[in-house]
Design a protein around this nucleic acid. Structure first.
Lengths: 212, 212
DNA sequence: CCATAGATAGACTACCCAGTCTATTTCCGT
DNA sequence: ACGGAAATAGACTGGGTAGTCTATCTATGG
């Protein structure tokens, strides 16, 4: 990213500092890192809050670059999607943004509402759309596509993201692609065509299938 | 909870205010809600940080009351476990604690380390233990029990917790017990005995099972 | 060359907060 | 009833921050 204007300089510094230190990063620190004067900042932004909103918007839209799923091969498409999603959601940047959004959710409810369609929301949406087509094509059992999408996303990053949000070190996954295959194959087994999972009544013939 | 001593009064007020406002809740506000004097607070606690640590410890240990799984009936046990886990993890209190832990993770790394075995950690542990027995008994396919446990927990609360952490309103689940059955039955299908999921190499015969 | 717009340094206000100190009061056990 | 421990109100210090204001400087375009 080539920074040219002072406004961009301020935004860049703000992004860095907010992601590092949260909203507590002071205006002094931000203008310090940007190498600009106090008044210059107030020439470009109304106040700290609006700078924060703008910086967060930039971060989120950066991470949520378009991610489409094209339905040539179900398993392959899901593996692709899974890989990109994990990479983004678990990246240090992705974690930091998530952390700061969570910690400032009360202070900036409007901003959260504005961005809630992005992030996981967008991921869920496009994935659910893709899954609906697979269900209609008989490649997956009939189920609520949104439920299916949320389930897959949760399985993909579930506990790992939560631990990273808390700063808990976790040994790197030995074999990322093996993990992806396990999750995707498990998901396919869960929503296999012969099953009917979801909106309708639960599958009666399965109820005691595995219990002793 | 019957409050008797001033120390308990302070802890109670601190819990309420920290959960509402995060660590930014001021000492003044806390002693105000407790109805006590400034110096009284500093007679009982070294400083704000130690009060915070103590209050958070109380909250967490309250929520993490023992939760055992007894292996009479696999599906029934999992349904039980799932119900309690969802109820706790998604309760307003559970969400608030999680939010404040995440937002203060950098400031209190030691506290996080101390508590990391609790919460989801403890849930994962006991569930993994239970699943290992089921696997050894042939009721589930061989897999990494921790992976299986984390997967189930993630499916149970995945996106819902994340949205609540952000303060996003979400329509209540229409039929909680139906949802639990869907998830648990899906989990059982995913880790069914005939499958071998996990540590070992991925099941080759499944690789293209669902793709077209 | 000058005028204007933007940038700069830094003082300054007004506020908030954590933690200390003091002098007084309350309460309880002996 | 008395003495000591704990509680209280409130002043006070020291530090930090957001935002304003002023006076100076710089650079660009006419």
């Amino acid at each position: 990213m080539i920074v040219t204007t002072n406004r961009e300089r301020l935004l860049l510094a703000a992004r860095e500092l907010f992601l590092e230190q949260g909203y507590d990063a002071s205006v002094d620190a931000i203008i310090g890192r940007a190498g600009l004067a106090r008044q210059t900042f107030y020439n470009h932004f109304q106040n700290k809050e609006s700078l924060f909103a703008e910086a967060v918007r930039c971060c989120v839209t950066d991470i949520i670059a378009p991610l489409s799923v094209h339905p040539d091969n179900l398993r392959g498409s899901l593996l692709n999607f899974a890989q990109v999603y994990r990479q983004r959601a678990l990246s240090p940047e992705g974690i930091a943004i998530y952390r700061i959004l969570i910690s400032q959710a009360q202070r900036f409810p409007d901003l959260i509402r504005e961005l809630s369609g992005l992030g996981d929301g967008q991921m869920t949406g496009s994935l659910a759309n893709f899954l609906r087509h697979a269900m209609d094509a008989g490649e997956l059992g009939q189920a609520d596509p949104v439920f299916a999408a949320e389930t897959l996303l949760a399985m993909l990053i579930g506990q790992e993201r939560n631990q990273r949000l808390l700063g808990v070190e976790r040994q790197a996954v030995r074999d990322e692609s093996l993990l992806l295959e396990q999750v995707v194959d498990g998901f396919l087994r869960m929503f296999a065509p012969e099953q009917n999972v979801g909106l309708q009544s639960a599958p009666v013939n399965l109820k005691r299938r595995v219990s002793r």
